[in-house]
Design a protein around this nucleic acid. Structure first.
Lengths: 321, 321
DNA sequence: TTGTATGCGTTATCAA
DNA sequence: TTGATAACGCATACAA
């Protein structure tokens, strides 16, 4: 490996002069600097990150921790993060799985954005206690080193239920996420409030896991108990698509017997027949705001709470009853 | 930050003893070792990656470089990579964009898997020349430090065209990828061979860019020139979906006027009506083999060429004519 | 303006 | 079995 020592030798100067030159310090003559830079280029010099990080005590890398790589959902989110980070001289790396958590305490990254229910809050708080800066997208955590950028779940769930009610539905199934999911619980809470305000409504909740299979299973239960047209609010699109798949294989029809709405506006929902109603929000904005907040935390700037707003996407999966 | 020095002081031993104990060396008493480990845990000691990397000259991290984060396609691929890497004590990080290329020469990662046409071959060869180990998934590069794991594009394209021909089609449009795409060119070559073997066939090729928009534009051209039912082979599903979208908005019907097949078996293709025919292959296997090859390269083991096999997925987007 | 010297936290060599 | 000490490559305070 070629180091500043080699450049120094070849240029006939000391390593500190080389270091200054490479870091564009004004402490060195324009002349010697350009000579050193030329030699560096000639020798294909690339600074060693480990050595630099050791001294600087920062890596200029931010980690995004996701549950998995099924980026159907994550593409825009990560793009939003990356654009902001790159603009500020940081790189983004995407990680998944418990094994990669080490990157934070070992100081391979300067901060993390977390959207992964499998990353426990205890662990996150521990890291925050040790001085690491975090932004979380899927929970509320009160800590000076942690900021949260959350979806306006309550508004979204309210919009969805109100839409069903406006269309005349009075029997509504709710397919929830896992009991420990922050998003699921927030949405569920808003659902209950909205329904309470619009009594009488028959509301039946079915526990799901935010995955396709849950949606299929819920569909089977609903079809088994079927007596009259019903509305279903799946608390995410993944389950909504699972339900769509299951219903497609039956004699029931989405938008006729089963009126369906989801949450997330996954691209796929616009390709189903009929189009699945859902709740939309800008994933790109979500990512970029998360990055901005993290950079503020790192810079020890004042940072307030940001929220991501949502809108209703109507679809033929919901018709008036 | 808490370092081995602190542990040494508290344990009343030297830092080298601490280092041995932490690295489970047999050079230290069971007794002192456990005492040191206890203190390390008590102090919440975490080794500093930068210092370790500097000495060890390796990070146990592998980077995957992708064109973007639209993981619709990448989810399984990355999962396959990760499983193999984790099992072997490596972590996977996912990167995108030119800025992150620095991680390789700066030695923040021990190797890279590349699926990104924007990562130039010249640059890759340069890195390989400097001793970095690479696996490429989207080109052929002859270099001792580079291995390629490629799709069997020729078989796939052959299968697709034969399928169309078997169904009686004699007028076939080909929508290609960018002119510099390795996959596109390989597929196109196989298309031509297959068509040559089955003359007479009218073959019209339209240049695309592997994105949805290209598919839409090709669709408009085809519909404008329409005189009789035609078959279309889009060299990837992304364009196939774009074409589907455009045709849906017209009076033409997929599987009736325009018979369509793509390549990649994106999840979305099974949700369209009718289901889009395509060419399938295991993305998971692709990723895991890529990782295996890279690990062999790093271990300086013998490494031969692997190929990812493909199969035909029939769909109602293609009917007999 | 340039050079000398020190330290970042760890591993590893060599003595003790 | 343990300890002192020298690297690893770079940045920087201080001296020249």
């Amino acid at each position: 490996m070629i180091s500043i020592k080699d450049i120094a030798k070849k240029a006939g100067v000391s390593i500190s002069t080389v270091s200054y030159a490479l870091n564009r310090s004004s402490k060195v003559t324009e002349e010697t600097a350009s000579r050193i830079l030329a030699i560096a280029k000639e020798l294909n010099y690339v600074p060693n990150a480990a050595a630099r990080n050791l001294k600087r005590r920062e890596t200029k890398i931010i980690g995004a921790f996701l549950t998995d790589y099924n980026g159907v959902f994550y593409g825009d989110l990560l793009q939003g993060m990356k654009e902001v980070l790159n603009k500020n001289g940081y790189d983004l790396i995407v990680c998944s799985g418990k094994q990669s958590h080490r990157l934070l305490p070992e100081k391979m990254i300067d901060g993390a954005i977390v959207l992964d229910a499998l990353f426990s809050s205890e662990e996150l708080l521990l890291h925050a206690d040790r001085g690491h800066k975090l932004v979380v997208l899927d929970r509320e955590l009160i800590h000076p080193n942690i900021n949260q950028v959350l979806l306006d779940n309550k508004a979204g769930a309210g919009l969805a239920v109100e839409y069903l009610i406006e269309q005349g539905h009075r029997k509504i199934y709710i397919v929830t996420g896992p009991p420990d999911s922050f998003d699921s619980n927030q949405r569920l809470q808003a659902v209950k409030q909205t329904i309470d305000r619009n009594q009488p409504i028959e509301c039946i909740s079915i526990q799901g896991k935010f995955d396709k299979l849950s949606g299929e299973q819920a569909a089977h239960q609903i079809m088994q108990d079927y007596t009259e047209p019903v509305a279903v609010f799946c608390l995410n699109d993944e389950m909504s698509i699972g339900m769509y798949n299951a219903v497609q294989k039956s004699d029931f029809r989405i938008g006729e017997h089963i009126h369906l709405i989801g949450f997330d506006n996954m691209e796929l929902t616009q390709y189903t027949q009929p189009r699945l109603a859902t709740i939309d929000y800008s994933k790109h904005k979500w990512g970029s705001i998360a990055s901005e907040q993290l950079l503020k935390l790192i810079a020890c700037e004042e940072v307030d709470q940001e929220r991501i707003y949502v809108t209703l996407i109507q679809g033929d999966s919901v018709h008036p009853v």
